[in-house]
């Protein structure tokens, strides 16, 4: 783990994953960009007014009998709603994402996709060839905006960051997400799981429950 200090308030800022290049100071909410051992402040993250989720930074869970920990979050909104993408790290170099939307949980890991179709040409129902991972069908195409970010993340998740999020389904519980952002296109593959499958620990307390 790498510990740097916040250029704004001096508090410790931890980087558990080497792939994280962005962090939000847990004290002063400054958004920080990391370049090697340097942290630059690029702005502040405004607090979320209404935020109802069972997860938080530090929540742990199990996936394939391996323990992971939530180290960052990106909350995105689109015209009909919002969802959370929780950045998780296993003890080693591996990272994955836990997507949370209306009670549905998908666990997915990065996949180096090649020859993806152009974002402008995509249509719902279209088949996308993810090579050895199989053929996936597009369910949803949404233009999303970053509403909130916290912890550490592998890209600059400043508020207002725009991207196009494409949800796809394969066989059984399999799913894939392709995120077309301004600078990069990233693909994730995973599947839907039940809440209890993860054996979560250190969840966020929810008032009244």
């Amino acid at each position: 783990m790498l510990t740097l200090s916040c250029p704004s308030c001096g508090a410790n800022v931890n980087f558990q994953s080497k792939s994280s290049v962005f962090a939000v100071c847990s004290f002063c909410k400054s958004s920080l960009v990391r370049q090697d051992m340097n942290l630059d402040e690029i702005g502040k993250i405004a607090d979320l007014q209404d935020d109802l989720t069972p997860f938080q930074i530090g929540t742990t869970g199990m996936y394939n009998k391996e323990k992971f920990e939530i180290i960052g979050r990106l909350k995105v909104g689109y015209k009909d709603g919002f969802w959370n993408e929780w950045f998780t790290a296993f003890g080693d170099e591996r990272v994955a994402w836990l997507a949370e939307a209306q009670g549905f949980l998908a666990f997915c890991y990065p996949y180096e996709a090649t020859d993806l179709p152009e974002v402008k040409t995509l249509k719902i129902g279209q088949a996308v060839d993810l090579k050895e991972k199989g053929i996936y069908e597009i369910d949803d195409i949404r233009v999303v905006k970053c509403l909130f970010s916290e912890g550490e993340l592998p890209f600059d998740a400043v508020q207002g960051r725009k991207s196009t999020s494409v949800d796809l389904t394969g066989f059984e519980q399999e799913m894939a997400t392709i995120e077309y952002a301004a600078k990069e296109t990233r693909t994730f593959i995973g599947h839907y799981l039940d809440f209890d499958d993860f054996q979560f620990k250190n969840l966020r307390p929810i008032d009244g429950w």
């Binding site: 979560f200 008032d207 009244g208 429950w209």
Partner: peptide, 21 residues
């Protein structure tokens, strides 16, 4: 709903009322 077995692992389960708006 404190002490309810079906609530997953939450540190110090809150007994407060839901935070309504």
């Amino acid at each position: 709903m404190a002490g309810n077995a079906d609530i997953p692992d939450v540190p110090n389960p809150p007994v407060t009322k839901p935070r309504v708006k």
